[in-house]
C-alpha cells in the first residue's frame, strides 16, 4: 500500500486490534505521524472498543445462579425437585423438623454469585480539627476492614459547610494524610460541595483551593440524596 492510498476501514480496525503483520503495522505507524484524520479514526475506534469492554465488565447475575453443571437447568425445576427429594426421602416425624433444612438449602442456592460492593458515604459538615481527625480515623478503619475481609467497597466522604476545611489546601490539618489515603485506597473519594465553595467566596472573599484529587459536585446535600437513592449507607460523623 503506497502513501497516496487510503487505508480501508477494515485495515484500520485490524490495526486497532493488533491483527496486522509487522510490515502492515509499520506502514500504519508511518502514516499516523502526519495524518490527523487517521489519528482521529484510530482514536475513535479505540474509544468504541473500550466502551464495549467497559459495558460488560460487570453484568447482572442471573436471578437464580446455577452453580453446578446439571442437565436440567431451570432453577425453579431444580429447586422443586430438590425439595421433593428431601420431603420424599424424609417423612413422618422428621417431616416437621425438615422445614428448616430445605429452606436453608434454597437460600444457599439462590444467593447471588457476584457480590455488589458495599457503598458508604460519610457526611462531614463541621470543621473542628479533632472532629475531622475522628472522621479520617473512622474512614480509614472502615477501608482497612473491607481490605482485610476482601470485600469490595466504595466510600465517599462528602464535605459541606465547615467540613469543607478538611479538603482545602493550606487550611486542612490533614492534607498529607488525605493524599496518602487517596493513594492507598482506589475506591475512596473525597467530595467537596460547590455551593459551599461559592458561599466562602461571596461571604469571605476567599478563593477556595482544594487538595489534589478532590471531586467537586454541585451540591453536597443533593449528592447525599442521590447516593441514598442509589442505596448508599449514610453515616454522619
Amino acid at each position: 500500500m503506497n502513501k497516496e492510498q487510503q487505508f480501508s476501514e477494515e485495515f484500520i480496525n485490524a490495526f486497532v486490534d493488533d491483527e496486522l503483520t509487522p510490515d502492515e503495522k509499520a506502514q500504519a505507524y508511518a502514516r499516523l505521524g502526519d495524518d490527523v484524520l487517521l489519528n482521529r479514526q484510530v482514536c475513535e475506534l479505540r474509544k468504541v472498543r473500550d466502551l464495549v469492554s467497559l459495558a460488560y465488565r460487570h453484568v447482572p447475575a442471573p436471578a437464580c445462579s446455577t452453580s453446578a453443571i446439571a442437565v436440567g437447568h431451570k432453577c425453579s425445576t431444580a429447586i422443586a425437585a430438590g425439595l421433593a427429594l428431601v420431603v420424599g426421602g424424609l417423612g413422618g416425624w422428621f417431616l416437621n423438623q425438615a422445614s428448616h433444612v430445605p429452606d436453608n438449602a434454597v437460600v444457599a442456592q439462590v444467593a447471588p454469585a457476584a457480590e455488589d460492593p458495599a457503598k458508604v458515604l460519610f457526611h462531614v459538615s463541621e470543621g473542628n480539627p479533632e472532629h475531622l481527625k475522628t472522621v479520617l480515623d473512622e474512614v480509614e478503619n472502615l477501608m482497612k476492614f473491607y481490605r482485610q475481609t476482601q470485600q469490595k467497597a466504595r466510600v465517599e466522604v462528602i464535605t459541606n459547610g465547615g467540613g469543607l476545611s478538611l479538603l482545602m489546601a493550606g487550611i486542612s490539618p490533614y492534607a498529607e494524610r488525605i493524599q496518602r489515603m487517596q493513594k492507598e485506597y482506589n475506591d475512596l473519594t473525597f467530595v467537596a460541595c460547590q455551593n459551599t465553595i461559592e458561599r466562602i467566596q461571596q461571604e469571605l472573599g476567599l478563593q477556595a483551593k482544594l487538595l489534589p484529587g478532590v471531586v467537586v459536585i454541585d451540591s453536597g446535600v443533593a449528592q447525599i440524596m442521590r447516593r441514598q437513592n442509589q442505596g448508599w449507607a449514610y453515616i454522619q460523623v
Partner: peptide, 20 residues
Amino acid sequence: AYSWTHNAALADDLVQETLA
C-alpha cells in the same frame, strides 16, 4: 451470552446448555 441477549435469565440458560 449476556451481551448477545441482554437478558440475565436467558444468558444463564444458554450458558448452562452450553456447558451441559
